[in-house]
Simulated assay, not measured.
Amino acid sequence: MGLPIPPILYNALDKLNKDPGGKEQKLLRDPMLETIDKAVLIKEIQQVQQEKIVQDNKKEE
């Protein structure tokens, strides 16, 4: 993001990113995540949230 990171925080994050042997850990991503359209996913999440609000309102009535 381009923001300066204080050295103490940078060092802590660097240590978390390495295993005890000093090798960097690589995060493995599920290949399926690369095929998901994020815009469609956001719309689906919003739809589910709206459905939940409607259900909650019906329960209150």
Rank of each mutant, 00 (worst) to 15 (best):
V48H: 07
I45T: 11
I45K: 13
P7L: 06
E24Y: 07
D19C: 10
V40D: 10
K18L: 10
Q46I: 04
L16N: 04
Q55K: 15
V54N: 14
Q49Y: 09
Q46H: 04
I36H: 03
I42P: 00
K59Y: 09
L33S: 13
Q25I: 12
Q55H: 12
P6Y: 01
K58P: 00
Q49V: 05
V54I: 15
K52T: 12
D37N: 15
D19G: 15
K15C: 01
Y10K: 10
Q47K: 14
Q46C: 05
Q47H: 10
G2E: 06
Q50H: 13
D14Q: 05
G22L: 03
N17V: 00
I8P: 04
D19P: 03
I42E: 15
L27P: 01
A12R: 09
P31Y: 08
L27T: 09
A39H: 01
Y10Q: 09
G21F: 05
Q49F: 08
E60Y: 12
Q49C: 07
N17I: 02
E61S: 14
L27V: 13
V48Y: 08
P7N: 08
T35W: 01
E51I: 01
N11I: 00
E61I: 11
P31M: 08
D14A: 06
V40E: 12
Q47C: 07
M1W: 00
T35H: 05
I36D: 03
G21Y: 07
P20H: 02
Q47V: 05
K26S: 09
E24A: 13
K26D: 07
R29M: 11
N57Y: 11
I42R: 15
N57L: 15
P7V: 05
M32Q: 10
P7A: 11
Q49H: 09
A39E: 10
M32F: 11
